[in-house]
Design a protein around this nucleic acid. Structure first.
Lengths: 227, 227
DNA sequence: TATAGGCTTTGACTTAAGTCAAAACAAATG
DNA sequence: CATTTGTTTTGACTTAAGTCAAAGCCTATA
């Protein structure tokens, strides 16, 4: 797809006028990555931010022992790496593609110029950052105050909601990545899925999962019941 | 202190000119709270945001069983509750004063008008949100990838850094609140402090703590050593 | 200064979830 | 299609941190 077409499909740039798209198209850097490539590393200086055009990246923290906590999986249309642009700090996390990807890179200085002249763009960016903040808040809540079965239930319910595919859903990430998103490890995830299946809450076959008892899952997610 | 004096001491409003302070002073609502008062509740609609003038509030999540995870303790000069203004979502967490406090409240609609006309204000707000995001990122890292002794060590080191009072420091929150900030409970915190003292890492007497072995604490914080 | 309420500590016990190791399964590539 | 590489599952074991209950401390105020 052409530059302007891509740009106008990005919610962050919604409502901008022709001139502004023009400017954007001049400062943007079109990039392609293979699966598993690092886009930036925690601690690295942020020279700009990215918008995902096609594919997906994981944004994650890494422990010294190599355990990953995924903060966010970024899909098409979403920006990432913005924090480093505005906070004047290095990137606070790592990012790596989980599939072949295409991104638009916007150099810091140019973008700041642009945003200073476009209140709407500034408001859009404030909305994006605020939503991310709300998102991390939910993650903290779940890591600190819920146990793994509750987190997994919430994830499955959210997923079936988002895709509105009834009670059937197919994981769009590996179970290892799912474990990393839920703040646990693959072994534990595996055991809990097995337990949920045994308890008649779900039916699980590889990546396809069917919700057999939605209310049960909801109670688990709320912490009203235990597995 | 008078309105304008207070306003000009707030980093978020740094660099604004006289006219803009004038406008701010007209839309601001000066509020006073006693210790332990709720300012807003998770899920409540956000009609505006706050800046702390004097005192402190805790921003926290609550589990069904009543356990608290503190996201942030807001002190003088810092804004809070901004997410609800820009994300068009309800407040994502609770807030309650931990001491007698004075806040400035800025109603949503008025403030949005103002920010649309002031690129500098927008940039300042972007910086604030970005820093918060980076902060939550660190919290997630520590909750998910570190154990309690490491979190506590990091906290003590950061505290002694921030106050640059050598190896002596005095906790400025209760141990219960500290536990809530570290994602644990008072009993666990108490035991770990006792263990650290026994191990010669610190000396602890009520709220005063002396760092006896800084390198040891650093190793603990990094996860290179265990308690 | 007595007393009530909130903090903090300690002990005994339970448990969720992690580690380590190995097998079983998929799936990707030459 | 065969083999290599990565992912998922299972089992046996360990452990950090939580629960519950009780006692001990502060310290604020009446």
């Amino acid at each position: 797809m052409d530059l302007l077409g891509c740009l106008s499909a990005i919610p962050l740039f919604a409502g901008l006028d022709r001139d502004q798209y023009e400017v954007l198209s001049h400062i943007v850097v079109d990039q392609v990555f293979k699966r598993g490539q690092t886009i930036f590393t925690e601690g690295e200086e942020g020279r700009g931010f990215y918008v995902m055009i096609l594919g997906r990246v994981k944004i994650f923290k890494l422990s010294p022992e190599g355990k990953e906590q995924i903060l966010h999986i970024v899909g098409p249309g979403e920006p990432f790496g913005e924090v480093a642009v505005f906070a004047g700090q290095p990137f606070p996390a790592h990012s790596e593609t989980i599939e072949e990807s295409r991104t638009f890179f916007f150099p810091r200085a140019d973008f700041i110029e642009l945003i200073k002249k476009n209140p709407l763009l500034a408001m859009n960016m404030l909305a994006v950052l605020s939503q991310r903040l709300a998102g991390l808040t939910v993650l903290i809540d779940s890591l600190s105050l819920k146990e793994v079965p509750a987190r997994l239930s919430a994830y499955l319910l959210a997923q079936s909601e988002r895709k509105s595919t009834g009670n059937d859903l197919s994981l769009d990430i590996t179970k290892g990545q799912l474990a990393g998103s839920l703040g646990t490890i693959p072994e534990t995830l595996s055991r809990i899925l097995a337990k949920m299946a045994k308890g008649g809450l779900i039916h699980s076959d590889g990546r396809r999962i069917t919700i057999m008892n939605r209310q049960g899952l909801e109670e688990l997610a709320e912490g009203q019941k235990r597995l």
